[in-house]
Design a protein around this nucleic acid. Sequence first.
RNA 1: GCGUCCAUAGCUCAGUUGGAUAGAGUGUCAGUUUCCGAAGCUGAAGGUCGCAGGUUCGAUUCCUGCUGGACGCGCCA
Length: 572
Amino acid sequence: MTISQLLNQRVQAALAAAGAPDAPAVIQPSGKPEFGDFQANGVMGAAKALKTNPRELAAKVVAALDLAGIADKVEIAGPGFINIHLAPEFLAQRLSAAQSDDALGIAKPAPQKVMVEYSSPNLAKEMHVGHLRSTIIGDAIARVLGFVGHDVQRCNHVGDWGTQFGMLVAYLVETRQSGDAELELADLENFYRKSKVRFDEDAVFADTARQYVVKLQGGDAEVLALWKQFVEVSMQHCQAVYDKLGVGLDLAAVRGESAYNDDLPVVVSDLRNAGLLVEDQGAQVVFLPEFKNPEGEPQAMIIQKKDGGFLYATTDLAAVRYRHRSLDLKRVVYVVDARQSLHFQQLFTLSRKAGFAPADMALEHVAFGTMMGEDGKPFKTRSGDTVKLVELLDEAIERAYTLVSQKNPDLAEDTRRSIAKAVGIGAVKYADLSKNRTSDYIFNWDTMLAFEGNTAPYLQYAYTRVQSVFRKVGAVNTSAAIVITEPAEKQLALQLAQFDEVIESVASTCQPHQLCAYLFNLAQQFSRFYEACPILSAEGAAKDSRLALAALTAKTLKTGLSLLGIAVLEEM
RNA sequence: GCGUCCAUAGCUCAGUUGGAUAGAGUGUCAGUUUCCGAAGCUGAAGGUCGCAGGUUCGAUUCCUGCUGGACGCGCCA
C-alpha cells in the first residue's frame, strides 16, 4: 500500500467517525513544505454536503484521526485543509522495505495478461523519425507494466502486407535480373522510391505488380518467397535500429499484418452473421451510428473493398479477435499516433459489437502527438525529406561524444564512446518521454543534450555522483538503518518513499512523463541533500544512514531510468 | 459541416477525482568551491493561465459561447 493509500484509508475512517462516511479524503502531496508532507482536502467538500462549518468538521476529523506511528504533527489550515507531517521514523521504516527489495518494495497488483502494441513500422520503407515516439513510449510502458508484475507481451504489428508489396516484389525481380539486388536493398528508402517510379512510369510493370499482390494473397509459393526475402531484409534494418535504441523488440514480438491474412474472410463472415455487415457501393461495410460522416449520416467502416481486397480496419479487427480468442488478453495498449484516434474508437466500438472483445478486455489507444522541428512544423531535413531514424540516432551519439570529450577529455577514447551512446540515446528518449505524450513536441538537440536542467544527462550525472561517493568509501551497508534528522534528509526520504505511487500511476495511465518528473525531482532532492549533508565526513550511524540513503537513491534512479529504457553510467 | 486534441513566464514544459500565494527547467541578474564530481547548490526578477460568461465557499481544472492553432471524417495505413 502506498503512503497516499494508507493516509486515505485513515482519513476516510476519521471522516466516517465525524459523520461523513461517504466523503472522499482527497489526499495529495502538499504543495509546500510548510503545509506538511501530505494534505487531506476532503473536509471542505464533506462540510458542504453536510451543511456544516468546514473548520469544525476538520477538528472532529482530526480528533478521530489515528495516525499513530505515521505522523508526528497534524494541523488544520485555511478553510479546512488537514496538513499531515509524517514522522521521520515512519519514513525510515517505509524505506527499509525498498532497501532490501529489487523491486524497491512496490506492492504488486494481481498479474494481468497485457499486450503493448508499439513501433509497428511499415516494412516497405526504412524506419524514420515518425516511428520514434511509438517505439520509445511503448517500450517504456511495456517495461513499467512488466515491472509491476504483469504478464506483458510486446507486439510489433509491422506493415508487411498490402498493395505496395506487389510493387516491391516486382522491382526485386527486376533488380535480381539486371542489377545488384543486395546493394539495392541496403537502402530501402531508395529501393521503394525506384520501384514507385517504375510503377508510375511503366504500365507493364504496374500490371505485374498488381498480379503479384493477387498471387501473394493467394499464397503463391514463388512470390511468397520473394516477399519473405524482402521482409527479412527490412526487418534487419528495424532490428539494427532497435538494438541501437536499446528497446526490447525482436523477432519474437513481430506479428505483422500478414499473420492475419487467413483470418480476414472469417472476420467478414462473423460480421455478416452478426447482422452488422451491409453492401454499399460494391464494398462490404459496417455502419456505426455512434460516429457521423460529413453528411451527418452514420460513419461507414469499410471491411472489404469492392475489388475484394481488405483494409487495415479488417486486419485490426482480426488482431483484436485473435488477441481475445487465442491469447486471452485482459488489456491491450495501442501506442499509436493521435491522428488515428477516430480509427481506434471505431475499431473498439465495432470489436465490442461483434463480440471480438468482451467487456472485461480493456482496449486502450495510447495516443501521442507529432514530433516537430524547431520551426514548429513536422520534423524534416532541410531539404524537406523525412529523417531516417538510424541517422538521427547516430547524430545523437555523435553530438554526445563531442560534448563528453569537451567536458571530460581525460577519459579514454572507448570510454567516451560508450558514454556517448548512453548519453545520446538517453537524451533522445528522455526528451520525448518527459513530455505529456498527447501533445505535439518540439525536437531540439541543444535542449535535450544539455547537462543542466530536466534532461537525461542531468539524471545520469546525478547517478555518477553517488557512485563516486561509493568508490571513495569502499564497502557500503546498503541496508543500514536510516536515521532522519536534517530537513534535506527528510525531503529526500519523502521523495524516495513515493516511488511506488508514481509507478502505479504510470502503469494505469500510461504516462511515462510522470516517472520522468519524479526522477528529476529525486535527483534534485539528492543534490540538495548532497550539498547540505556531508556523507564521508559524517560518523557512526549518521554516516551509515547517509550512505544508505545515497545507495537507495542510486538504486531508485537506476531502476527508474531503466524503466524508461535509459542506461546509467559509473562515470561520465 | 461534424468530431478529437491543444492555447499556462521571453523559450521548453508540469499542474494528479475543483483547493491555500499557479510551479519546474532554461535564459537573465546576483551569490556560492581550503570539504564527497560546481555538469552542482542558494536567491531575485519574470503570469490578465487565449477571450467572455456560467456553476460555487473556492475554477488553470467543470459547462456554454467566441478567437486562434493542429489533426481526423468511404475503398491508403
